[in-house]
């Protein structure tokens, strides 16, 4: 099986799925905005102007101003950078942990497997949001801590997925052949098994980034995520909640941004799943 042509075939199928393409476009759009916020707005996201508190959308401030007179559009653009990188880094951590645990459990089987999988079961018993909040209470809410916490509480699904893939892959002929040629465990795991689990991991990762962005925005919304004055979509919404009776724009736009980003990642993820394995379509 040629990895290269499989990738091309997958991309071809992906490009034929209009929903997946739309999802990819949304994701790309927000990434560009996050990388080059000055393309859209020249306002300083942290400039306080007490004369312009809670102004509705206007030419000068297309998305209005917040309770400190800061430009909402500028804050959202810079918030995009924070929210997207939290989602990305947190999910990378989750994938990393899930990958190692899943590979070890699936490859070694037996006691190692049952021990690791019991650990997964135990972790799944905790309401994730409770666990995240509890850890934050101990180590405090900084951006890095938030990334770390979302990552270490969100790897269980990936671990189960990788374990299942590894279990079936290790019985395949090419693994036996590699072993017969004297390949070591590390080589078999990383050279032969890992690349074959990439497709489902990619799907899980895409959906996972969406999930991490949702969790981060929820935490920031509650005031225990990204801390002001650093803007994030979630903490702009906090101001929206506090001024719910006079400033609808503070609630509407950041939420819309979260919604579209998450929707984009979800559509892209589902699209990748269908493209990788067309049999699962419509499930």
């Amino acid at each position: 099986m040629n990895g290269h042509s499989m990738l091309r075939e997958t991309l071809r199928r992906l490009s034929r799925n209009p929903l997946a393409v739309a999802g990819a476009a949304v994701v790309l759009f927000f990434c560009v905005l996050a990388l080059f916020p000055w393309l859209v707005s020249s306002h300083d996201p942290n400039r306080i102007d007490i004369l312009k508190i809670l102004e509705p959308p206007s030419g000068a401030h297309p998305l209005g101003t917040d309770d400190l007179g800061r430009d909402v559009l500028a804050r959202m653009l810079h918030g995009a950078r924070i929210s997207l990188s939290v989602g990305f880094v947190a999910e990378s951590i989750a994938i990393g942990i899930g990958l190692v645990i899943g590979l070890l459990a699936g490859y070694y089987g037996g006691k190692v497997d049952s021990l690791l999988m019991r650990f997964v079961d135990i972790m799944l018993c905790f309401p994730t949001f409770f666990l995240i909040l509890a850890v934050i209470a101990f180590i405090g809410p900084s951006i890095w801590n938030i990334m770390f916490i979302i990552g270490v509480t969100g790897w269980m699904g990936v671990a189960r997925l990788v374990r299942a893939e590894t279990l079936s892959l290790k019985e395949r002929d090419f693994v036996a052949a590699a072993r017969a040629q004297g390949a070591g465990t590390a080589r078999i795991l990383f050279r032969h098994i890992l690349p074959n689990t990439l497709a489902p991991i990619l799907v899980a990762a895409t959906l996972g980034v969406a999930g991490a962005i949702l969790v981060e925005s929820g935490l920031s919304f509650l005031g225990i995520g990204v801390q002001p004055p650093t803007p994030s979509w979630g903490n702009i919404l906090t101001a929206g909640k506090d001024n719910i009776e006079f400033a609808w724009w503070l609630s509407l736009f950041p939420g819309l941004a979260i919604f579209l980003t998450v929707l984009g990642y979800n559509l892209l993820g589902e699209g990748i799943r269908d493209a990788v394995d067309p049999r699962l379509k419509g499930r």
Partner: peptide
């Protein structure tokens, strides 16, 4: 359903409160 998966529910809460 797809929309439902992507909507941050706390945001939906704000909108419904408004």
């Amino acid at each position: 359903v797809f929309t439902g998966f992507a909507i941050p529910t706390f945001w939906l809460a704000l909108l419904l409160m408004i």
